[in-house]
C-alpha cells in the first residue's frame, strides 16, 4: 500500500513539474536572420544557444507598456545578478522593424542605462520579424496613430504584452505578462528550469 501511495505521489510530482514548464514553442530548428542594436547580423535563437534566455517584445514608440516590460527585464537581470545566477541571456525583439532600426534600439537602451553585457536588442526585415512573431505567438496590430503636419505618421500597436523564458534548447517554456510580471515568480522559474 505504502509503495502504491509513493508511486502515485511520484507520478503526481513529475506530472505537475512537467505541466508547469511544458514546451509552448520549439525554436531549436529555427534560424531567424536579424540585426542587433550595433547593426551586427545575428541568428536568433542561435545567439543564445546553450543558455537560458528571457525574451521580451517591444516597439520603441510605445510610451508605457514596452518601457515597463523593458524595466521589468532590467529588474530580473539585477535580481539574477544579485543571486549570482549566471548564464542567462536577455533578448528584446522589436515588432516595429520599419521604425526600430539598430540605432533607434541602441538609443532606447542607452537612455535607460541598461546593462547590455548579456542583453541584445533585435530587429530585422519585416517578413522575418513577422514569421518569428507568428512562431512565438506574439501579435501586434496597428492601432491609433499620430499624423504630423509634415505627413509623418507614428503608429501605436495593439500588441501582446509578453516576456517569455526560453530554455537552453531553444524551447519557449513559459509566458508572462511583460508589463506586470511577478519578478519573484520568474526568478524562481528560472532557478527551477536551471536545476
Amino acid at each position: 500500500m505504502k509503495k502504491l501511495i509513493f508511486t502515485l505521489s511520484l507520478i503526481f510530482v513529475v506530472y505537475s513539474c512537467g505541466g508547469k514548464f511544458d514546451t509552448i514553442e520549439d525554436l531549436s530548428d529555427e534560424k531567424y536572420n536579424l540585426v542587433d542594436q550595433n547593426n551586427s547580423r545575428i541568428n536568433f535563437p542561435g545567439i543564445v544557444k546553450g543558455k537560458m534566455a528571457v525574451v521580451g517584445y517591444i516597439f520603441t514608440n510605445c510610451p508605457d507598456i514596452c518601457p515597463l516590460t523593458t524595466n521589468n527585464m532590467r529588474l530580473i537581470q539585477e535580481r539574477l545578478k544579485e543571486e549570482k545566477i549566471n548564464n542567462i541571456e536577455f533578448v528584446s525583439i522589436s515588432f516595429d522593424p520599419l521604425v526600430d532600426k539598430p540605432g533607434v534600439l541602441r538609443k532606447f537602451a542607452e537612455i535607460r542605462n541598461l546593462d547590455l553585457s548579456n542583453w541584445t536588442f533585435l530587429t530585422g526585415e519585416k517578413n522575418v520579424i513577422d514569421s518569428l512573431l507568428k512562431k512565438v505567438q506574439v501579435f501586434a496590430v496597428p492601432g491609433d496613430s499620430t499624423v504630423f503636419q509634415s505627413g509623418e505618421k507614428i503608429i501605436y500597436y495593439v500588441h501582446t504584452d509578453r516576456i517569455q523564458i526560453m530554455d537552453t534548447d531553444g524551447k519557449i517554456r513559459k509566458n508572462y505578462p511583460g508589463s506586470s510580471i511577478n519578478i519573484d515568480e520568474i526568478v524562481e522559474d528560472i532557478k527551477s528550469l536551471a536545476d
Binding site: L68, F139, D144, Y156, T160, D161
Partner: peptide, 29 residues
Amino acid sequence: MFKKGDMMGMRQVEFVVVLPNSKVEFKPR
C-alpha cells in the same frame, strides 16, 4: 491604456474628470 485578452493598446481621451474631494492617478498601464 486598454487591455483585450493578453493584448494591450492605447487610445487618446479628450478629457479626464476629477471629482470633488478626490484624487485621480495618472499611472503606468
